[in-house]
């Protein structure tokens, strides 16, 4: 089926019109088990891409590999024209490819505003030799604080500004982590299960934030279990199972794909995907 994202028909590993990230032959083994085995994958620029698949499909591992948090057995991947294989995670982040974590990593014993400030890049005051001369960094500090306050307002966390991050609810921590990632104006945001454990009221606002990101020209790649969420906001869906890309395409098409149904449901092919996916996967 034709679409305006891929070159030609959508198929696992298909070429994109304007990819921001291109991965080739990325594999990762744990002991004898192959966790990730991706032959070719391109992520379209300026779109929201969902990465879905059952538990143990290798989604988080692939995230870890692409962002330098884990080392692959083989493979290369090119982000915005730069080969990132072997680049340490902090340099990946500096290049504008910022991620969040499945288990939220809010820095519990820092205040919300300090969490935010930490997200900004290239701070002169983070250099040790300049750190004890406040005039050298106070101006930039004020700039990033203003920016952080802006973001906190957008994410409705401004009332919590001076609280320790530990005092936030699970959903608020997810919001904080996402807002913190935006402090560096990333080009590609990679969200690992942003909706997991978030109550329905907050989920809606999270989804809005993700859509806002796209409006501002940021590329989003996110991992998700729940197919309903995926259907609402993503432009493109990539499906992983047992470490491999088994399907990709626009959400409406992918959900009818036999390979996806097999991967998720096995024999229960006639059930609606959105409602049962999580239960079935967890029972596996």
């Amino acid at each position: 089926m034709a679409n305006n994202i891929s070159v030609g028909a959508a198929a696992p590993g298909c070429k994109k019109v304007d990819p921001i990230l291109v991965a080739d032959n990325v594999t990762r083994q744990f002991g004898g088990l192959t966790a990730v085995d991706v032959a070719h994958l391109e992520i379209p620029r300026g779109q929201i891409t969902a990465l879905i698949g059952p538990n143990g499909a290798g989604k988080t591992t692939l995230f870890n590999l692409l962002t330098g948090f884990d080392k692959p057995n083989t493979g290369t991947w090119i982000y915005d024209g730069k080969n990132l294989a072997g680049v340490p995670s902090y340099k990946v982040a500096r290049l504008g490819m910022v991620r969040t974590f499945q288990l939220t990593k809010a820095l519990s014993l820092l205040t919300v505003i300090d969490n935010m400030r930490l997200g900004a890049q290239d701070q002169p005051g983070e250099n040790f030799l300049r750190s004890f001369l406040k005039p050298l960094w106070v101006k930039y500090e004020n700039q990033i604080t203003a920016k952080a306050d802006d973001l906190l307002k957008r994410f409705k966390l401004d009332a919590k500004r001076e609280d320790y991050a530990a005092a936030l609810s699970g959903g608020q921590r997810k919001l904080l982590e996402m807002a913190r990632a935006l402090m560096s104006d990333p080009k590609l945001v990679m969200l690992d299960e942003p909706m997991a454990g978030v109550n329905p009221a907050l989920t809606q606002s999270l989804l809005e934030h993700i859509k806002d990101l796209k409006k501002n020209g940021t590329t989003v790649l996110f991992v998700e279990h729940d197919m309903h969420m995926v259907r609402h906001i993503s432009d493109w869906v990539v499906v992983m199972a047992e470490g491999k890309i088994v399907a990709e395409g626009p959400p409406a098409v992918v959900m009818k794909d036999q390979a996806v149904i097999d991967a998720y449901l096995g024999a229960h092919a006639d059930t609606d995907l959105g409602t049962v996916a999580i239960k079935v996967v967890k029972g596996k």
Binding site: V98, T100, L107, S108, D114, E126, S131, W137
Partner: peptide, 19 residues
């Protein structure tokens, strides 16, 4: 800000790395 990074590392070094 330098000390802030250190305190961040104390809390979770992977998070600080991702920033």
């Amino acid at each position: 800000p330098w000390g802030r990074v250190l305190r961040g590392i104390r809390e979770d070094e992977d998070a600080v790395r991702s920033l």
